[in-house]
Design a protein around this nucleic acid. Structure first.
Lengths: 133, 133
DNA sequence: CGGGATCCACCTAGATACTG
DNA sequence: CAGTATCTAGGTGGATCCCG
């Protein structure tokens, strides 16, 4: 119907925007590192290769499913390598690829910024929350 | 029961880990900027103050609810300022605070990294996907 | 204009159980 | 050891209606 033109136009704009978002490199990277367990896993692997169970022990908050999912995604994106040693029982080791090592400094930069400004963020939160009690 | 000791120990470790995560500055910052619309809103405001409707038009993919929610969170965290001009109808303008301006370079660094490495990520994805067809 | 409130559909993450 | 499969509850975002 003609009465839906405005809605349709909005839908088209939204679709185009979604497509743009999906293409935007910085948003894709943000989606990767913003994922809950990625930074933790990456920082563990930055110290050297780790086996699955070692990662699981180091990250008690992550369920096996999430850990596997995180590792699969990172493997797919080329940040980590998965090495299977056929043995009984099998041994699987994860390590950073060159690309994975290149993102470590970025993570470090984010951490440095966070450490420097987290106090201001908390102060702002306290102020905001106090204002609307 | 004594048989639950292992499970209890895991639960305790998870709780401690969750608490640590909640405290970790870099994870908090990652949670903020990893939020879907934050980087877009911030980049818009980096160019100067914008009114609510202007932001909504610039971000067709965001529903009014999400835009409001994003702006509220950013305001609470001290990144943006909300200025209300009492008029009929009322005018609300959003702008970056000094803290908000300080995060712009970090976002720029992420963008630079993303632009430089997105090709490798896509190549890795293609390789991974092709390998398991 | 700039939202708040409400309801709903979807997706995700966790728990559980099983396997090579 | 290193996962996979299934089920389900809870959270998240969208749509809609209403208000100052």
């Amino acid at each position: 119907m003609a009465t839906m033109t405005a809605a349709q136009r909005r839908a088209a704009a939204k679709a185009a925007f979604d497509e743009y978002m999906a293409m935007c490199p910085s948003h894709q990277v943000l989606e990767i590192i913003g994922s809950k367990w990625v930074s933790l896993v990456l920082s563990r692997l930055a110290d050297g290769p780790r086996r699955y169970a070692e990662l699981a022990r180091a990250l008690p908050g992550a369920s096996a499913k999430m850990l596997t999912q995180t590792l699969r995604t990172l493997e797919r994106d080329g940040f980590v390598a998965r090495d299977v040693t056929p043995a009984v029982p099998v041994q699987v080791s994860y390590s950073l690829t060159p690309l994975g090592e290149r993102i470590v400094p970025l993570l470090a930069a984010i951490k440095a910024w966070a450490d420097e400004h987290i106090g201001q963020i908390h102060a702002a939160r306290d102020r905001y929350d106090a204002a609307r009690v």
